[in-house]
């Protein structure tokens, strides 16, 4: 029997699907926090989510006939729902609303690991040369330079700034290795947003979001958002790039043990490069999250 999620997790908004990809008038099924869900979109295009009973994937359904509905919110191109009492707001990504950006969902990838492990991997720069060889990093340039991490009390999020790394192919226009600067936000226990220097406009930054859908404590789906200043690449190019990256992460993450993220500082061996991961683990611990993690024994 799966354990019931902690109240914090239960009351969070969770991503369940890319809204555009939800078929109108057909059922799609998924799993959230060990709970079976059914989803569809009405003829008005609005997503509807409910607790699944005997519906099967692909069944025809009239969204109006669904009376017992879960709360729904659409944001950043995705459909979000909540199994408890949701907060009024979802975390902000102000850049998403800028008119000249290309916003796109880059697909959803199932990973047999806990959602917090996937978040931590997203925050990690040290693996670039080894896992994303010749794309996000390459040997011998393996150094993770000192960066800053803080937990913003006011916004209740983990913030890592001045993260720098030498990348061989930071952007399509890049010639030779260049140092890129990243800012990472963790505004939600299972979501993270990355800001990356933009090759087309020095004053602005490309935004990449990763939203994890915790299906069970040890399984998740990673949903990707890109919000780019890029006037040349096609959507297919940009999607393919992100899917390559996540395709490289998947086999590594699925070989990580334990699959749940251990919050006891003595369960693994952090180094200075892992400052953001340490802050993230502490933040989860302080919030009282127990879903998908191994809590610190008190």
């Amino acid at each position: 029997m799966p354990q019931a999620p902690d109240p914090i997790t239960r009351n969070l908004w969770h991503v369940v699907a890319a809204t555009d990809e939800l078929p109108i008038g057909l059922v799609e099924t998924t799993l959230l926090l060990d709970t079976r869900l059914a989803l569809t979109r009405g003829s008005d295009g609005e997503p509807v989510v409910w607790l699944r009973t005997d519906e099967e994937n692909g069944d025809e359904i009239d969204a109006d006939s669904v009376l017992e509905r879960l709360p729904v919110r659409t944001a950043y191109g995705y459909t979000w729902t909540c199994l408890g009492t949701p907060d009024a707001e979802l975390f902000p990504i102000p850049e998403f609303a800028e008119p000249d950006r290309v916003n796109m969902s880059c697909g959803s990838i199932g990973i047999h690991v806990s959602a917090p492990r996937a978040v931590e991997n997203f925050l990690d720069m040290g693996h670039f040369p080894y896992v994303h060889t010749d794309i996000l990093g390459s040997e011998p340039h393996t150094e993770v330079k000192e960066y800053d991490v803080e937990v913003s009390e006011e916004r209740d999020e983990v913030l890592a700034t001045k993260c720098r790394f030498i990348q061989p192919m930071a952007a399509k226009s890049a010639v030779g290795a260049m140092e890129v600067e990243y800012v990472y936000r963790v505004p939600h226990p299972f979501c993270s947003v990355l800001y990356k220097s933009c090759p087309e406009d020095e004053t602005r930054r490309d935004v990449i979001g990763i939203f994890l859908q915790p299906m069970t404590e040890e399984r998740c789906r990673a949903h990707l958002l890109q919000s780019m200043i890029d006037s040349t690449s096609t959507i297919t190019d940009l999607r393919r790039f992100q899917q390559t990256i996540f395709g490289q992460d998947k086999p590594i993450l699925e070989n990580q043990y334990p699959k749940k993220l251990p919050l006891d500082p003595r369960s693994e061996t952090p180094i200075r490069a892992d400052k953001s991961a340490i802050a993230y683990r502490r933040w989860l611990s302080q919030k009282g999250i127990t879903y998908g993690v191994i809590p610190q024994a008190s």
């Binding site: 693996h127 080894y130 393996t142 590594i252 070989n255 251990p262 693994e268 061996t269």
Partner: peptide, 22 residues
Amino acid sequence: HRGVRLSIGINEGQELKCQYHG
């Protein structure tokens, strides 16, 4: 470091290199 299986690591002859962070 991060719990990744060493059996997917690289045998460099006299040292074993982890796939995740080297």
